[in-house]
């Protein structure tokens, strides 16, 4: 006589499974981040003078272009959530006391949201032509101030 294994041995869980979406998010954001981060590194470090060219005027030039604005905000949001959720995995693995684990996970998400808000505010309210000191700095950094401020 054969052994009868009752079926189903584990019921299929229905409903919303947050851990599963977190798992999928890590993979989906990972794929997108390859394009976003490699493009970011190429544009900032490989082209022209690379790191040596980066200053106030360089960023003002990039953020005059909606293309780089969307690029940077997307990268900011995807990378911070990916990194924070990854760090949450480590905290879950290594924190031994429940209250420490919970506190650290809260701290991670508070940091994540704060930096996303700070980053988006910095980019969206950025005005490199708003005052004389900024205009002087643009000129000192070697920007074509008239063209740049016309674009902003």
């Amino acid at each position: 006589m054969s052994v009868i294994i009752e079926s189903p041995r584990s019921r299929k869980r229905s409903g919303f499974n947050l851990e599963k979406y977190g798992w999928m998010y890590m993979r989906l954001s990972g794929v997108l981040l390859i394009i976003l981060i490699f493009g970011h590194l190429f544009a900032n470090l490989m082209v022209g003078d690379g790191i040596h060219a980066i200053n106030f005027a360089f960023v003002a030039g990039k953020w005059a272009d909606p293309f780089w604005q969307v690029w940077d905000v997307t990268m900011l949001v995807l990378a911070l959530i990916h990194g924070t959720n990854g760090m949450r995995t480590l905290v879950n693995d290594y924190a031994e006391r429940e209250w420490i684990r919970r506190t650290l996970v809260w701290l991670l998400w508070i940091t994540c949201v704060t930096l996303i808000v700070v980053g988006i505010l910095a980019l969206t309210t950025f005005d490199p032509c708003g005052d004389q000191a900024s205009l002087d700095l643009l000129a000192k950094d070697g920007a074509n101030v008239a063209a740049l401020c016309a674009a902003h």
């Binding site: 960023v59 309210t125 950025f126």
Partner: peptide
């Protein structure tokens, strides 16, 4: 990077 918004120099 966000520093650029409050203190360009």
């Amino acid at each position: 990077t966000a520093l650029i918004r409050i203190d360009p120099a």
